[in-house]
Design a protein around this nucleic acid. Structure first.
Length: 159
DNA sequence: GCCAACGTTGGC
DNA sequence: GCCAACGTTGGC
């Protein structure tokens, strides 16, 4: 019996946006293309079915957490690595010896008020977020406190 | 478009 | 195993 964990996934909306995820059949997609070892380890070993996911738009105007999703399939080999026509081919990864992994996520909630990076930087209880301190990591952990605070800002109940 | 940060590669 | 060179990310 383990408790739910929380994560943040980054995507450039010009490449794949939260709207794209909402437009998928069953609002579910493979989170493929991650080619960083630390992020790979998180995808492969740590993210569990039912875990909460923040969907973050990087390189966007503005950069922001735009919604939430849930993990619906745990780490399995990223088959796009051995597809030479994919966006991120890596010939060193094979079906027999996969290097890269992915999870499936399903969209949950689109924030009525996307939580921008500058907003996050202005909240003292969010100053330890990985997003703020190690900005290049594209798959990163989120504490339960950070999860709750950003959900409250993104989906205010009393408006 | 610039450029700082930082992850990866490869020569030694 | 070190570290310089290089490539990429991503905020601004």
């Amino acid at each position: 019996m383990t408790e739910r964990s929380y994560w943040l996934l980054k995507s450039e909306p010009t490449a794949y946006s939260f709207s794209d995820l909402l437009g998928e059949e069953d609002q579910t997609a493979e989170w493929d293309g991650v080619r960083n070892y630390q992020a790979r380890n998180t995808l492969r070993d740590e993210m569990k079915i039912g875990d909460g996911v923040f969907f973050y738009h990087s390189n966007a105007k503005p950069t922001a957490v735009v919604g939430t999703a849930v993990v619906v399939r745990e780490g399995y080999p990223d088959h796009t690595a051995w597809d030479p026509l994919s966006e991120h081919p890596d010939p060193k990864s094979t079906p027999e010896k996969p290097i890269w992994y992915m999870v499936d996520i399903k969209a949950q909630t689109r924030f009525s008020c996307p939580v921008t990076l500058s907003e996050i930087k202005g909240v003292s209880s969010l100053e330890n977020m990985v997003l703020v301190n190690r900005s290049r990591l594209s798959v990163q952990p989120v504490s339960i406190e950070e999860w709750e605070i950003i959900n409250e800002i993104g989906m205010p109940k009393d408006v």
